[in-house]
């Protein structure tokens, strides 16, 4: 598995390189800013791009924009993992828009749990979607609200969805909720129906379900779907 790694913090970049090499990945190139990443991803056509979101020159969301540019170029099979010090649902939504190929969005600190991080990388490379568990935490808070268009979900379905959001398998969810794996599958498929998710790779649908749930917004008037940019 060939990786292009973008991280402006040199020490962390070296640490990640070390981690990746030890996990059996080949680091084809490293970059320290957004434009550099786009160039190197084009040049090396790696299996996976790992990038920090906040990078030079603007120190805002250069990594995210680079990742979207790369995915938009039809570089099929090029999986992307975004790392950041914080996880924004907004960013996750933007990232998922052209949902093709493996995708990950994790807090930077997750890399320290080497074993789990390596598993996540492999799932992403295999075309899976991994979203950080903080998203599930937001889901937990927001699940109290009664205004969701997806309020149709039963309490049990929401429990299942939260565990899905944490990236757990059906078996793990069944074990956690002390129900059969078969009924987990039934819950999950009803969730798909309720959220009107299109037919898709199972892994995708699971994450999309979570994201759809989170992005399902209460009545919102005025600014349309995209909030106006402010300076």
């Amino acid at each position: 598995m060939r990786v292009v790694l973008a991280e402006d913090e040199a020490l962390l970049r070296h640490g990640l390189e070390l981690l990746l090499e030890r996990a059996g990945f080949t680091v084809a190139a490293t970059a320290a800013d957004g434009p550099d990443l786009v160039r190197k991803a084009r040049a090396h056509r790696p299996d996976l791009v790992i990038t920090d979101i906040r990078m030079p020159p603007g120190h805002t969301d250069e990594g995210l924009r680079a990742a979207r540019a790369i995915r938009a170029e039809h570089l099929d099979g090029m999986a992307v993992l975004l790392l950041s010090h914080h996880v924004q649902i907004t960013y996750a939504l933007e990232l998922l828009e052209p949902s093709r190929g493996g995708l990950g969005y994790l807090l930077k600190q997750r890399v320290a749990d080497v074993e789990r991080f390596t598993q996540d990388l492999k799932r992403i490379c295999a075309g899976g979607i991994v979203i950080d568990r903080t998203v599930a935490e937001v889901l937990a808070t927001a699940s109290d609200r009664s205004d969701d268009p997806v309020h149709r979900l039963t309490a049990r379905q929401r429990d299942v969805l939260m565990l899905v959001a944490e990236g757990r398998s059906n078996a793990a969810i069944a074990q956690r909720l002390s129900i059969t794996e078969k009924s987990v599958v039934a819950h999950v498929s009803r969730i798909y129906d309720e959220l009107a998710l299109p037919a898709h790779a199972e892994d995708h649908r699971r994450v999309l379900a979570v994201i759809r749930y989170l992005s399902a917004r209460p009545e919102r008037s005025g600014g349309g779907t995209t909030p106006p940019e402010t300076r």
């Binding site: 937001v138 808070t141 927001a142 109290d144 989170l214 917004r217 209460p218 919102r220 008037s221 005025g222």
Partner: peptide, 9 residues
């Protein structure tokens, strides 16, 4: 989005 109650924004 993170609030536990509905918001008309």
């Amino acid at each position: 989005r993170r609030l536990p109650l509905p918001v008309r924004l």
